[in-house]
Write a protein that binds this DNA or RNA. Structure first.
Lengths: 132, 132
DNA sequence: AGCGCCGATACCGTTGAAGTAACCGGGGTC
DNA sequence: GACCCCGGTTACTTCAACGGTATCGGCGCT
């Protein structure tokens, strides 16, 4: 309650390394919506975030693609976009209940990956070595 | 135990309409691996299937794409391909334990879709109508 | 001889998602 | 007046997945 001008509780800053670049979706065999939708949901699970806040952990995604992803998610009712008429401009993205309902699924996918993804990658590597 | 020449228990025939063409993956916001991987896993969950057996419910997918999907899944250790030296040729695809481990996730995705997909589609439609 | 079955493969075209680079407006700051 | 920040947008290019059509080889059937 120190520097929260509009009364909204700000969640802790996002870790810029919260996504392993070695596991982009090439290895992760799951996708929710577009390529970055799942990661955006993860970024928003603790509260509303601004555009540039989302870009910190998602620095691999260009503003164009992030903006496309966000507009698609807004269209699908997964998040809401709130623009404050301030200066500098401020825009906040917040998960809707529908968007939150995907969190358990993302958890399940993450759990699967932790336990089984090494097996999948090992099978892939083995296959490449026996038939190069 | 009537017409099972090689002793393998054959599961019931697949329903050619087991996949709703109105819900291809355009609406289903989940993907496991490639576009058809999830459906192949569903087709194989009751036991091994032959190539043409898989084509019955997946008649939208051409043999080329199905064969590509199957080879990718074999490479990733999700299924095994067994070729019998008979005539006419016979090839069977069977889920591995790793492939089976994805079934709970597919169940979870299906459950989500049943309860929440209408909301998502309604939001999409509403958005299209207010901003055409 | 000709046709069909099974399980593919080869060749080629289309599509759409993703990426690159540049730019915008409007106010604050130096 | 020059520059920066925020939250994007626009135009252009790239690339892999996807799809369509044609074909194959070996055998059996008629």
């Amino acid at each position: 309650m120190t520097d929260s001008p509009s009364g909204t509780r700000r969640p802790a800053p996002l870790d810029p390394d919260m996504f392993d670049p070695l596991c982009p979706s090439s290895a992760m065999p799951f996708r929710v919506g577009d390529k970055w939708t799942g990661m955006v949901i993860r970024c928003l699970e603790d509260g509303p975030r601004r555009f540039t806040e989302l870009r910190a952990p998602l620095r691999a995604v260009t503003p164009k693609v992030l903006s496309e992803t966000l507009r698609a998610m807004e269209r699908d009712g997964l998040l809401t976009r709130t623009s404050y008429d301030e200066n500098p401009p401020r825009v906040e993205y917040t998960l809707t209940p529908l968007g939150r309902s995907l969190l358990p699924l993302l958890d399940a996918a993450r759990t699967w990956s932790r336990t089984h993804l090494p097996l999948l990658l090992a099978a892939r590597t083995a296959h490449e070595q026996e038939a190069p």
